[in-house]
Simulated scan of single mutants.
Amino acid sequence: MHASSLTERRKHETRLDIARTAAALFVADGLRATRAEDIARAAGVAPRTFYRYFATKEESVAPLFAAGAQQWAEAVRAAPADLPVAAALRHAVTHALAADGPVAAGSLDWVRSLLRMSAESAALRSVWADACHTSEQTLLTILAERAGRDPAAEGCPLELRLAAGIASAAVRVAVETWAAGPAPADGAAGPAALAERCLDALDAFPWP
């Protein structure tokens, strides 16, 4: 493996380790009571290392939000090429949001806990909003690729941008709705099922 690639991988792993540690401390001790220095100590890094990766304690959980959002977008990319957009999106939520194993279920539990905390933290809500926005831009790129268009070009169709925005909002609303309630992640009121319902409500949309 190339040295620069190995360095980037280590940085990525360090960020994720800090993020998991931060989430665990937030759940155990509360967001307000947890300091950045507490997270650094529990993660086994120096405070200066923490601040090299994250500006605030709230930002330290951004990799967890980003990982889930990226998984959803990549699931759209992995959907069979012959599926129309609406079907590809449904295929993606079924795979990306399903609690079909301990790792997936654990990740969704983290997201649920953090989203509940965000109700009382504007900083944490901002981190979640940034992750959702980034996911929408990634989804736009993927939908454009499926349509054979350049998402960076000025001529990227309005319909593609709207499709990415609507689909991203549907998934966000589904996850937030599930997180606010008591339902398990793998049932009819879980995030995957709710996302499918949200997408079903958009059947009238002229998907590109």
Rank of each mutant, 00 (worst) to 15 (best):
H2V: 05
A3N: 12
L6T: 12
T7Q: 08
T7A: 15
R9L: 14
H12I: 00
T14F: 01
R15E: 10
R15H: 08
L16D: 06
L16Q: 09
D17S: 14
R20F: 04
T21F: 05
A24V: 05
A24H: 04
L25A: 05
A28P: 02
A28F: 03
D29I: 00
R32G: 04
E37W: 03
D38E: 01
R41N: 07
A42W: 03
A42M: 08
R48D: 14
R48N: 14
Y51N: 05
Y53C: 05
A55Q: 14
A55V: 14
T56F: 03
E59F: 08
V61F: 02
V61M: 04
P63W: 03
A66R: 14
G68C: 04
G68W: 00
Q71W: 00
W72G: 05
A73G: 11
A73R: 07
A75F: 11
V76M: 07
V76A: 13
R77N: 06
R77W: 10
A78R: 08
A78G: 12
A81K: 10
V85T: 15
V85G: 00
V85I: 14
V85L: 10
L89P: 02
L89M: 09
T94A: 07
L97F: 12
A98L: 08
A99P: 05
D100E: 11
G101C: 12
G101P: 01
G101Y: 09
G101R: 06
P102W: 10
S107A: 15
W110M: 00
W110G: 00
R112H: 07
S113R: 12
L115E: 03
R116T: 07
M117I: 04
M117F: 10
M117C: 10
S118R: 12
S121V: 09
S121Q: 00
L124C: 06
W128N: 06
W128F: 14
A129T: 15
D130C: 07
D130T: 15
D130V: 09
A131N: 03
C132L: 12
C132V: 15
T134Q: 12
T134F: 03
E136V: 09
Q137P: 04
T138W: 03
L139T: 11
L139W: 09
L139F: 02
L139C: 08
L140R: 01
T141N: 04
T141A: 15
I142N: 01
L143P: 03
E145W: 09
E145F: 11
R149T: 08
R149M: 13
P151L: 05
A152V: 08
A152Q: 08
A152D: 15
A153L: 05
E154P: 11
C156T: 02
C156R: 00
L158Y: 10
L158W: 00
L160D: 01
L162H: 01
A163V: 08
A164W: 06
I166A: 11
A167R: 09
A167V: 13
A169M: 06
A169I: 04
V171W: 02
R172K: 11
V173H: 10
A174S: 05
A174H: 00
V175I: 15
V175R: 10
T177C: 10
T177G: 14
T177I: 07
W178F: 03
A179T: 11
A180R: 15
A180T: 13
G181I: 10
P182N: 07
A183G: 04
A185M: 14
D186F: 07
D186N: 15
G190H: 00
L194R: 09
E196K: 11
A201H: 06
D203H: 12
F205H: 13
F205T: 02
P208C: 11
